[in-house]
Amino acid sequence: MDLKLKVWRQKNAEDKGGLVEYQLNDIEGHMSFLEMMDILNEQLISEGQEPVSFDHDCREGICGACSMHINGEPHGPDAGTTTCQLHMRKFNDGDTIFIEPFRAKAFPVIKDLVVDRSAFDRIQHAGGYISVNTSGNTQDANSIPVPKVNADKAFDAATCIGCGACVAACKNASAMLFVSAKVSQFALLPQGEVEAKDRALNMVKQMDAEGFGNCTNTGACEAECPKGISLENIARLNREYLSASVTTDH
């Protein structure tokens, strides 16, 4: 298929940037979106132009590195799919495809389609972990009983790959779905209980400090999440945060 691409090009964080149009021919439906981008870059290099910068790593939908806002949606038109797993057969011959970086104040553009998502790392550092004694007497996790329903919900929350599609899709650039998944995966398990209160308080505090917007429950994040993280997690985060606020000693 032949495609017309409108790709966001921006030299660096200070550059104003803009959409640049490229014509790309003979693209096969079996290709992934990133392979299509690779071919675009081959073409640009052979023409002596600067290739388009974009994030990618595992290319099998589990690392959360790839991003891109494709035709108005993070990770493109296919539901429950990351950009690397998006096949070109989802597009038609002659289509125009808009390719933009994720947009948020907390995700500044570094170059072209690459945005700085280290805000998510800092939120994780603020509480997205459990403390485990590793001095040789680590308890086997399976020796602690966990209700099946909680284990399932914790696992569903833990499938969040931290790609930032929720922020990109939200009209308020809110990171609530990400933070709620990271809080939920521990809040539901006995191992996470010890630090549950501080985790909720500190991760929300860091989220606010990073300049993400406020959640208005539009559900856009859930609709665009490649891992199908549920809004139920946001309600749980609200509960965890509010109950921690009124029960902690500090």
Binding site: K6, W8, L19, H69, N71, G72, E73, F98, E100, R103, A169, K171, T218, G219, A220, A223, E224
Partner: peptide, 8 residues
């Protein structure tokens, strides 16, 4: 965004 599907 130049193009947005506006979910929600």
């Amino acid at each position: 965004y130049a193009m947005s599907k506006n979910q929600g």
